[in-house]
Amino acid sequence: MGSISFRNVDKVFGHGTGGVKALDDINLDIADKEFVAIVGPSGCGKTTCLRMVAGFEAASAGSVLVNGRPVTAPGPDRAVVFQQFALFPWKTVRENIELGLRNKNLPVGERNDLVASALKLMNLETHVDAFPHQLSGGMQQRVAIARAYVLDPEVLLMDEPFGALDAQTRVVMQEELVRLARHNPRTVLFITHAVEEAVYLADRVAIMTRRPGRIKEVLDIKAVRERENWDSHARIEDVMDLESFVHLRTHIWKSLREEKGFKDV
């Protein structure tokens, strides 16, 4: 089980008159095993939403619930994939993936099995003993995803995970994430400012306004995807060519354009 709820969430950074309101009355419910992407202009507070679910930030008002319980601290039930990977540079690929399992005090045998399957899942078997600096950005992010997946988290939080990758690597990772998400579905909150990425990956896309961020609109992508059978196309570019995809993308673009201060891409 892994549901996420934002209930009337405000976030103010700083105190008193110097305080800046980053989020204004956020309401969003993400069902178990649902993939929701949040898009919005830079600085709209979309990453702050994710950081509150992760337990890195507290809401100034309202509540953030996971499985109906308020979030109080970070924990392995809500695995995070960071934009800058945040791997431990002094640990090998195996050691990076293994740390969360060691923290859970799993016996060695079980740990090894889980690490092996995570390595296989992300095609990392040949890099088990490499240090992060020996890997490309795409490879490093694979390790970070494996590190998150191996925990079997109720909720997966991805904060612009492909933002630091080059265009080609990005496409490969997007395709792989779709493969993962369809075969091994779990609750995902995905932050991005790339509209196509959001439409391609998510079941629903939430569009945010500029700061102070509010949820402006939530689009049901899944209904369209299933109706138009997007998953019958293996390649991302074929999906992106479909009329139904273009239609949704354009809709989101226009919605974002209305937000003054939207400067991305």
Binding site: A54, G55, F56, A73, P74, G75, P76, R78, A79, V80, F82, Q84, A86, L87, F88, W90, K91, L99, G100, R102, N103, K104, R147, L151
Partner: peptide, 25 residues
Amino acid sequence: DKPILEAARMLGTPRLRMVREVILP
């Protein structure tokens, strides 16, 4: 790097291991 500490906390790293395997290195 702040994300490194956050990653370690997210992974549920206990205090002593945090010092030995994250903060020290």
